[in-house]
Amino acid sequence: MQSQSRLPANPSRTGAKGFGSLIKWREKMIVCVAVVGHQNNPLYVQSFTDADDALKLHHIVHCSLDVVDERVNNPKKSGPTLNETFLGMLYPTENYKVYGYLTNTKVKFVLVTTDLDVRDADVRNFFRRFHAAYVDAVSNPFHVPGKKITSKTFAERVSNIVKSFGLSSAG
């Protein structure tokens, strides 16, 4: 493909505002993060939108598990290493991108973002911090493994990580 075919992205958004639920300002932000357990059961799903699309985000996270399964079952031969936890982009949907991460204990992290030009490095960084937060949360002696994560500290920490997403590389 020629490089020039990448068209300048300057859609006339003025006309697009407010019409149809699909059209929203494509803000560069994380709209949903999720922790999914061994039986593909949700352990923690949190959306970060003001809109009423939480259910839709749940659907997106759920569907993305299909890709995780496929990646895990048919690992790419040219894949970097066996222990790579970052699964990369799972699939693009209408106006979201979904990224996945698989811990060594086979717990899945899913990230849904509206930033269509997000950089892999940012996502990796996000997952790394998120993983650390998760590990701290489940290391709590009062947490029962396999149950939903209800810790408020965890929620706060995740919220901070989400807010700071992409800031380091802004510009």
Binding site: N41, P42, H58, H62, L65
Partner: peptide
């Protein structure tokens, strides 16, 4: 089976 309660609710 997978315990997606919100989706099941819908």
């Amino acid at each position: 089976k997978e315990g997606w309660v919100t989706l099941l609710w819908e």
